[in-house]
Design a protein around this nucleic acid. Structure first.
Lengths: 192, 192, 192, 192
DNA sequence: AATGAATGAGAATTCATTCAT
DNA sequence: AATGAATGAATTCTCATTCAT
């Protein structure tokens, strides 16, 4: 039955890695095939088109964040501070260690005008992130409205920091921003 | 002989406009020629290559910001608040009205891994911006070190806001961030 | 082991149907496999190559015409007019109801220069048709030579009519031609 | 100004020649470029796509027939027989000498189901031909209705003959048919 | 300076066929 | 027999750059 050379997960991970480094337009089907140990034509057994692959990569990554990272926020077994730690730790880990910075932002900016197909998933990712942070702020005695604004500001700050970290090759941008976010919560909590 | 169809400034402005909409990889030499009322081959009378053109566009834009926008900060004829207003007003105007969001960020993210040539100018742009904001914070009774950090944070916040504004098509991100920055100064100043 | 999913006859009928609609070059092995409820690789258990399949389809179709249609002409239990009716009725039925017009002509024209392999069967089909009509004309008091010419003319007329019927989407071409052929015989017969 | 390697007319003639031999699907852009002394990419300076090229070839050929061949029929300086001779002579010459038989029919049959774009020009060609022959039959004392039917029949006969001539490699099919057409007119005319 | 044709590498994608399971 | 992944050549088309006019 000719078993596949790679399982879907690996395919998506490898493809993500290439897209991260070269961007959407900068990545060729050859690059993607090679990154998966395949020859040019073979990758079409796994995907329908470059666009479809990117879409699947984005969706898988979004799902990963939603289920593995943002979800921590709703785990009532954890203290508020622990939840904040979790979400900021994961963020820092991901952004610092993986090349490519924030994938959603990079791809979003590159393709917004020319491939609007990707916009929806990207929006969903940010919506989930804002929702998660909102939840934390609500737990921290903010009204729903305040919480949402705080969350949006926090996400913008983190994304801005990630970008400048990449562009200026200075990790302090991100570290500082995440610390500030954590501090935010600590102060209130300790205020009791 | 035969005088040029377009002057350098117009060439750069037109090219910037195309690059903004389509990105670096997404823009073809044909697009650029057409945007300048030229036919394919003719644009090579003005530039050496696509890369050289982008580099010049980036430099010109950086110079524009340095000389026309960031410079306001050092104008001692203006009050501190006026200077803050100037720099935030220009930012808002540029980011909100011109399509393409922040050009330096977009191009930087798209080309960082594949065309490192552009990284330097982009870094210079951000350095100048940070320097300008630093100066404002110093005027506002912050130490040199504190001022620099405040400035870096502010720039990151603005850039993050611009990005999310574009991706999520919600101008509030930027408006809120700029207001916050202005508020920062007003409070201190009025505190006297 | 494992009995075939489809019998040969069905395989050929299904394949004919695809070839009729898409032509030889326009039909992919995938199309053929799918039309037979098989997956890509499986069709090679039945056939050696696309070319071999087409050849078999052509041969089967030719045999069908020879044995089921043209053969009526030699059936002495039928009156001359009945035989004419049979052969023209079958022609009209086939050409009018099945999409794709005349398969032998279509494939012949498409592949004559690039795949001369098919030319022989196609020629055999037309020879048999001409032979059948010749026989009818001989029965109708024509010399062998005259009969052959009449038959060739009739076949050319029918084929021309079928083609124009398809290209111009006007069934009258064929109806008219077949009526004329029938009339030919009726007049002579009634002339007695 | 870099003058073109080939003028439009030559381009179309060369391309027609390739399309005639290999059909539409069987002809590659490489074939077309090579036939015009160009390299792969260069042919796109002349045409937009393979489809557009075929369309232009068909239109040019149709115009040629309309203006140079069918038009003889309306030339009142010529006798009726002369006009018949002209139109049959041209037909025979074209069909016999140029490989590929009747281009409109071949391309029409090959692409009818998959590229309906070509159907319109092909229909126009046949309409013009029928119109021309109709005119001759009208001059030969047939009513408008009769003339049209005679013309349609004649075109079908000629096309059928051309096809069988090609498929069976026997020029007699066409010669016979054209002679019959001419005879048609001679008899009536001499009948006076 | 302007043109626009030529170039040739490279893009995404399709396809007939092979082969391990 | 059936599968369906792998292959690699071929297909249409794009593109940055060069160059003769």
């Amino acid at each position: 039955m000719a078993k596949p050379k790679i399982d879907r997960k690996t395919l998506l991970r490898n493809s993500l890695s290439v897209f991260k480094t070269k961007g959407y337009n900068g990545t060729s089907m050859n690059d993607l095939a090679a990154a998966n140990g395949l020859l040019k034509g073979s990758i079409y057994h796994y995907i329908e088109s470059k666009e479809a692959l990117m879409l699947e990569v984005l969706n898988a990554l979004k799902d990963h964040y939603v289920n593995k990272v943002f979800s921590k926020v709703y785990d009532n077994n954890l203290s508020l501070l622990k939840r904040v730690d979790e979400i900021t730790f994961r963020a820092q880990e991901i952004y610092t260690h993986e090349e490519g910075g924030d994938f959603f932002v990079n791809i979003g900016l590159e393709t917004l005008n020319t491939n609007p197909v990707f916009a929806e998933v990207i929006k969903e990712f940010f919506d989930e992130w804002v929702k998660a942070l909102s939840h934390l702020f609500e737990l921290n005695n903010h009204s729903k409205e305040e919480a949402k604004i705080h969350a949006e500001v926090a996400v913008a700050e983190i994304e801005g920091a990630v970008m400048l970290m990449r562009l200026l090759k200075d990790e302090n941008y991100l570290i500082r921003t995440l610390n500030k976010l954590k501090q935010n919560f600590k102060e209130t909590v300790n205020g009791y």
